[in-house]
Computed example of a mutant assay.
Amino acid sequence: MNAIKHSEERLMKVLLAPVISEKATMVAEKNEQVVFRIAPDATKLEVKAAVELLFKVQVESVQVANRQGKQKRSGKSMGRRNHTRRAFVCLKPGQEINFTEEAK
């Protein structure tokens, strides 16, 4: 279906970590979505291919959000946390990703 081929090596670097938070849990229950931290230069097509490759599920859609790093103060100087990028992956009905079960 997709004419663009991505190398497996690149796809392994796209997903950085799942986001486990109160908001991510609510989104997962309500909308059947899973939230991942992704590489800053990752595209929606790469995220979709990476999730399908790693978790053996079918992805319906992907939404991406850029989050600005918070400004923090250390003494007199101001600093900033790193910017992050998140992907909200909507799975097809009947599909799920369980992070608590052992990897086989």
Rank of each mutant, 00 (worst) to 15 (best):
E46C: 00
H83D: 15
V51C: 10
E52Y: 07
A65T: 07
E96S: 15
A65W: 06
M1I: 11
E101T: 11
E9N: 10
K48H: 05
T100N: 15
A39K: 06
Q33D: 03
L11K: 09
A39M: 04
V47C: 01
A3P: 02
P40N: 12
E9Y: 12
L45Y: 09
K48V: 02
A87I: 00
K56A: 14
A87N: 03
G69W: 05
L91S: 04
V51N: 05
T25Y: 04
A103P: 03
S61E: 12
I20S: 12
S21H: 03
V57K: 10
A3S: 13
V35Q: 05
E101D: 13
K48I: 02
E101A: 12
V35D: 05
V51I: 14
V47D: 03
P93E: 11
H6D: 06
V27C: 04
G79H: 14
P93V: 04
T84R: 09
E22C: 02
V64D: 02
E96Y: 08
E101N: 11
V19D: 06
V51Q: 01
F88Q: 00
I38L: 05
K70T: 12
E9C: 08
A50E: 02
R37V: 12
R80I: 08
E46S: 01
T43F: 01
V35E: 04
F99Y: 14
R81L: 15
E60H: 11
T43P: 00
Q33A: 14
A49N: 07
R81M: 12
V59G: 06
E9D: 15
R81Q: 14
M26C: 08
C90Y: 11
